[in-house]
Structure formats: structure tokens, C-alpha cells
Design a protein around this nucleic acid. Structure first.
Lengths: 95, 95
DNA sequence: CAGGATACTTTATAATATAAAGTACTTTAC
DNA sequence: GTAAAGTACTTTATATTATAAAGTATCCTG
């Protein structure tokens, strides 16, 4: 099968949920936590991985005196996701 | 007595400890917490008050991905403290 | 199949802020 | 002088994220 072609970044349910959520618009850490139901720690780790892979950008600032983290999909992230979906489609089509 | 002259900002043990600690050099929130033994909430509140009074400046930044808060005495803060000590001295001297 | 290597997840703890509740002290009113 | 009010300080709980440690699952390898 083409299983070996599945990019690292899509081999985690949580990362997949994050990317899916970011397709529509940038979201804060809190929003992602709510949408995914993930724990803080796990969410933090997976966001870092997506960021290191260049799939998302992470902006940090202070909203008042509290930290605010915003995640946004990069073109690379978007393209990779598109390609991944195409790959799944082709697999579905029987190769 | 001159009791009524005691400035608001010096009427709290914690604020006094903070100012005393900052006389030597700027310190982080964590350092102040350690030095004073105060709880996070209380320390945060009293730092805000000192800042609003113009006695200290509070700088916020990210050290890596974590927030770092640094407090520094302003000239006003330093002068006020000096004057306060003088006031106490004069009271001690019998007015 | 036992033993590792990997990677993901949870849990605990850290850095600060805010709000709510508790405590103390000081006025005011009777 | 004391009960009721008002003020201010303190603690406690919870919110934002990050990191490290421990747990769990999976996969490879001999």
C-alpha cells in the first residue's frame, strides 16, 4: 500500500484535528483546546511539532497581562493537507 | 503624630518588602516571590499597585515560550522610599 | 515471543493574572 | 462602647500556556 507515504504530521489524531480546525481561520490555544478536547500538555506539544514542521505559525503576545497564543496554518501546511487528502482519495480509488 | 503622612504605598508589609528588594536591582516575579514568600495572587496584586503608583515599572516578555515579568524601581519609587525613611528618622528623633 | 525503540498521552508543576472569598482594621452611628 | 459598614490586604481557586516525567501503545528485532 501507499501507507508509507503518509506524512509524519498526519499520523496523530490530535495534529489532524488541529490542522482541520485551522483550515478555516487562525485560532487561539484556548479555542483549539475547546475544539479538540485535548489536555493542555498534549496540545502544547503537538502545536510545537506542527510549528517545527512548518505547517503552522505560532504567534505569542500579551492580551492585557495574560499570554495569548495564536496558531495559523501556513501555505505549506495547507498544501500538505491537500496532498494528503488527495493521497487518501487515490487509495480509495483502488490505488 | 506624623502618621498621616505615611504614604499609602508603604502601608503594606508586602509592598515594603518588594520595594526594599528592588533597591538593589531589578528582579523577576519569581525572584520576588522567593524573597518575600508571598502567594502568587497577592504578589501580583501588590506589584500592580506599585506599578500604578509609578513606584516601579513592570516589563513583560517571553523567555522562550514562557512569560517573564521583571520589576524595576523608578526614580519616583526610590525617592519616595528615601523620603519615607527620612520621615521615620525624624519621628524617631522625637519629631 | 521477550525486549527495545518510538511516539503519543496524561499528570504534575511552573510562570503569572484575575476574581471571589476570607480576615482584619478602622470608622460611623446609635 | 459596641454593632454595622467600609477598606484594604491575603488566600484560594481558576485561567493561560510550557516543560518534564511517567504511563501507554505500537512496532521492530533478535
Amino acid at each position: 500500500m501507499e501507507m508509507n507515504n503518509i506524512p509524519e504530521m498526519f499520523q496523530s489524531k490530535l495534529r489532524l484535528m488541529i490542522i482541520s480546525a485551522l483550515i478555516r481561520q487562525p485560532l487561539s490555544f484556548s479555542a483549539l483546546r475547546q475544539l479538540t478536547g485535548a489536555t493542555d500538555g498534549n496540545l502544547s506539544v503537538q502545536i510545537s511539532k506542527l510549528s517545527e514542521a512548518g505547517y503552522i505559525t505560532v504567534r505569542k503576545e500579551f492580551a492585557g497581562k495574560k499570554p495569548l497564543t495564536t496558531c495559523e496554518l501556513t501555505p505549506l501546511g495547507r498544501d500538505s493537507f491537500r496532498q494528503y487528502v488527495e493521497l487518501l482519495n487515490s487509495i480509495l480509488q483502488g490505488e
